[in-house]
Amino acid sequence: MKKIAIFGGSFDPIHTDHVNIIKTCKYDLGFDEVWVLPAYVNPFKTVSTSSVTQRLEMIDLAVKNLNYVKVKKFEIRKTVRSYTYDTILHYVTNYPNFDFSFIMGSDQLDNFEKWDHFSDLIKTVKFKVFIRDPEHINNEIIKKYNLETFKFDNNFLSSTKIRNLIDIDLQIKEVNDYINKSLLYLYERLETKMEEDRYFHCLNTGQAALQLAQMNNYDLQKALIAGTLHDITKRWNDEKTIDIIKKYDQSLLKEPKPVWHSFSGAFHLKYEWLFDDEEIINAIFKHTVADKEMSVLDMIVFCADKISIERDYPGIEKIRTLVYRDLKLGFIELLKNQYEASVKKHGKENIGSKLIDSYKYWVKEEVNSE
């Protein structure tokens, strides 16, 4: 009789500890197959922050080399909440020659008796409990129902941690890359760290960058990502901003404080989100004061930030028209405007060397070439 471990959960997102539990089921507990069963909505949660398709794609990435894993869509394709009892009854009824066990984490034990049709469920299938946190485990429930418990290669991860950028270095790289490139979990990663108008400016800049990418035959997703994330550290306090800049390039602190967020944002993405796309990192690094070397994406993000839909400064419609017509000329005009406004407000000696260097290279060179 084939032994099947049913491993249910939200998997929002799937992470390394999920995979380690799967491997333990196969190699230590002797299951022939592990059926991963993502839920449409966990009955104890009210919302999922990624789509059905995205969660399935992340699961596929995580288990692509595990040929004993089957991803089952019985629950996730439903349009109403799913309960474990309905699922187990379905599989036990339709596969009478299979020996099923249900995999659960010890963190679920406190609510175990609240599961739908619990008294029938506990008689229908065997439960295998994996110890997530040895210091917080409901031994009373374990003894009451004579549940088997198991250890595994435990990194003490959770989907909540991953969504909130905690212990990202322990996450499956392919899944983390997918999350970054799909701009998943922005609510947890952005909105709770900045005020509403700044959050919507980030979203608007992403859309402006997307539009400019379409006009300039550039990678749409890269532009959307870089534009959306350009101000991710804009509202960090000085201490946090200084710490990350000191850690990776202390010389940048000589630049004016208002532009620090472009440097801290690039470092935050590269070293704390583990973003590995250098084009995106560079575009965020350069979006305030530009640089002598500006790629198409660099110009797109620089301009998108300054012409996003909520911007309403004098002359904005004229500059938008110029940027839409010619990205490079629009970039140069915006850089010229920024330089002149900064000098007028702060004095040339207080605007930093990077803006001066960019201005000399792009604006003066353009004038000399005419």
Rank of each mutant, 00 (worst) to 15 (best):
L327Q: 02
R325T: 05
K306L: 12
I307Q: 06
Y324T: 05
I316S: 01
E310Q: 11
I309R: 13
R325C: 03
C303Q: 09
L334Y: 07
L335Q: 13
K336M: 08
L327K: 00
V301T: 11
T321I: 00
I307K: 01
G330Q: 06
I309M: 09
T321D: 03
F302N: 03
G315W: 05
L329P: 01
I307H: 04
L327Y: 02
E310P: 14
I319L: 01
K328I: 03
E333T: 13
P314N: 11
I309L: 11
V323F: 02
Y324E: 08
D326A: 12
P314L: 07
E333R: 15
K306I: 02
V323R: 01
G330W: 01
L335W: 10
D298K: 12
E333G: 06
L322I: 03
C303D: 06
R325Q: 10
E310W: 10
F302L: 09
L334W: 05
D298C: 13
E310F: 10
Q338M: 15
N337D: 14
D326P: 11
R325W: 01
K306Y: 09
G330C: 09
M299I: 07
N337Q: 15
M299Y: 10
K336W: 10
K318C: 02
I332P: 03
Y324F: 12
I319S: 03
Y313P: 10
Y324N: 14
C303Y: 09
I332L: 14
G315M: 08
D305P: 14
Y339I: 05
M299L: 09
R320F: 00
P314K: 04
I316M: 00
D326S: 13
K318A: 01
M299A: 07
E333K: 14
I316Y: 06
I332R: 14
E317N: 08
K336T: 14
T321G: 02
I300A: 01
E333H: 14
I309N: 10
C303T: 15
C303L: 11
L322F: 05
K336N: 15
K328D: 00
K318M: 00
Y313D: 12
D305L: 14
I316W: 02
L329N: 14
F302M: 04
I309E: 13
P314R: 04
M299N: 07
Y324G: 05
V323A: 03
M299T: 06
V323H: 02
E333P: 06
K328C: 03
I309H: 10
K328Y: 08
Y313K: 15
K336Y: 13
P314G: 09
E333M: 11
I332W: 08
